[in-house]
């Protein structure tokens, strides 16, 4: 396809992409036409949103119900002091718009739950999980599978982080973690420490994996989880496969809609 369909400004802005064999003009147009939903605009969502906006993803949906607190600014670099005590999605939408005015941003101030997840996710090509609860991860995984959308998962805990991509039919979050952690298990929260740049690494890899999904290039982190330990400075890869007995994506699925989701994650219900 000819490069002519990019404007002169786009050819300058995305010049470094146009020089890449794996992107080029066709890949850039694909990025410009694509849409990504980022669920959670915190530590992981900050770098993911910044790098996807910089890359020229056409439409970015930002979902978060929370407001910006001072203790977020230690790592959530999309936010600013001016946005304190205000909606995270509004603050993030402003930063993204200032970086790349071409991007259409949907600022969705909401909690993703079993009632709105299908409707929200179905509007986008790729879903980025930047949430910080086990509950939300199972929910997004089920919803993405039911809609047959790729889901780019990332999570951090203290000094460790992980990232992987769930492509429908090749495994989901339940294949990786069949059992939710026991009630009372510690998850990422205000009571757990974190070093500022750790989510930068994980969230940025999530952005790279999203770009690879959109441009259909490279080897995606499918069927493998990349595990990072910041203190030891090590990266390790663990392989996993689709679980034939998975209630969501297995051979005899029992989750056919998010209405079935509560029963399946019942063990978690006391924790949310």
């Amino acid at each position: 396809m000819p490069e002519a369909s990019l404007t002169a400004e786009q050819r300058q802005r995305y010049a470094r992409h146009l020089a890449l064999a794996e992107i080029g003009p066709a890949g850039q147009r694909r990025l410009l036409r694509s849409s990504v939903l980022i669920v959670g605009v915190g530590a992981l969502g900050s770098p993911a949103a910044l790098y996807l906006a910089a890359a020229g993803v056409g439409a970015i949906g930002l979902v978060d119900h929370d407001y910006v607190r001072l203790s977020n600014l230690q790592r959530q670099v999309i936010h600013s002091t001016a946005g304190l005590n205000r909606s995270k999605v509004d603050g993030a939408a402003r930063t993204v718009g200032a970086l790349n005015p071409e991007v259409k941003v949907d600022a969705i101030e909401a909690t993703v739950d079993e009632h709105n997840a299908m409707e929200l996710l179905q509007r986008y090509d790729v879903i980025v999980d930047g949430t910080d609860t086990f509950h939300a991860r199972y929910l997004l995984s089920d919803a993405a599978y039911l809609l047959r959308k790729p889901l780019v998962h990332g999570s951090i805990f203290r000094i460790e982080g992980q990232v992987t991509v769930f492509v429908p039919g090749r495994g989901c979050y339940r294949c990786l973690y069949p059992e939710p952690p026991p009630a009372g298990a510690i998850e990422e929260s205000e009571q757990v420490g974190v070093l500022a740049p750790l989510p930068g690494i994980i969230g940025t890899i999530q952005a790279a994996e999203t770009i690879k999904q959109i441009t259909r290039t490279g080897d995606p982190l499918v069927n493998r989880v990349l595990l990072h330990d910041t203190m030891a400075m090590t990266f390790r890869e663990v392989r996993y496969r689709r679980n034939p007995a998975c209630p969501t994506c297995g051979d005899r699925p029992t989750v056919h809609s998010l209405a079935d989701y509560r029963a399946v994650v019942g063990a978690e219900e006391g924790r949310a």
Binding site: L20, I23, Y51, A54, A55, P197, I205, M233
Partner: peptide, 13 residues
């Protein structure tokens, strides 16, 4: 050429 996320990963490291 360069992809932004590549510099993001290395810079964060």
């Amino acid at each position: 050429g360069i992809i932004g996320a590549a510099s993001g990963v290395v810079g964060s490291v």
